[in-house]
Amino acid sequence: MAKNINKVIGQDAVIKKGWLMAHKWLLLRRVSQLAILGLFLLGPVFGIWFIKGNMSSSLIMDTIPLTDPFVFLQTLFTGYLPEITVITGAVIVATFYFFVGGRVYCSWVCPINIVTDAADWLRRVLKIKTSLSFSRMGRYGLLAVSLVLASVTGMLVWELVNPVTMIQRELVFGMGFSWLFIVAIFILDAFVSRRAWCGHLCPMGAFYSLLGQASVIKVIAINRESCNDCMDCFAVCPEPQVIKPALKGSVTSSPVINSGNCTNCARCIDVCAEDVFTIKHRFINLKSTSQREVHL
């Protein structure tokens, strides 16, 4: 780790691949996040109602329903069986994330990710190394709390304080004081604890981790033998614990990053000068990797 304290993460990759290729996935993610938010704002700002509602539940072209499966699950836990529209919407969204990776929601859709990525960037720029450490299991605790409270009180209790849906909603429906939560999350992540919100606390992230555990699209350390131990991927990764088994596992272990915590943000691909990582259909790559191992 000592190596990367004195250099900018991904510097080698920028030199080798050029700035654009070393930021390709980051830029694509930002485009995706802003485009999705933009689609939601198209209606209220310009009167073009391509999509109506917010990220909790919405309607595309007045026909296709989409519902956040986590919010939907909370509703089920209150003991209420909702109408078919919202069930359909939840099934559509859950199926999508089941295949592309649950936490694709976190890194490609959720606007909070921009805030927490910015906080992490600031940490690196200011070289803040102290970080209050607590378990990444906390989010599963909060996930359990949100569901238990829903069934005990019969209300969507987590939605009373959920900063994610709150900020998404107020961005689309008019800002109240939820911007304070944006500030709070930024301060928490930048100055208190690294990746505290998305990586440790957010129960939505925990839910999507579980949902995407068996996803088809995975980041794969396909060229792990070319790894030169620069540690840039670990430094940039919001969930660095997921890389080690795939990158540093034994020769016979799978190079696929199998953890549901991986957000498929693909920043590891960006910052790697040696092109160790790729993001692909995991079955194809398992095959090609085993062939490679045969050659070795």
Binding site: S56, P82, V172, F173
Partner: peptide, 10 residues
């Protein structure tokens, strides 16, 4: 109502 509303604003 509070057990059913997902706060979508539709």
């Amino acid at each position: 109502f509070l057990s059913a509303c997902v706060r979508c604003g539709l």
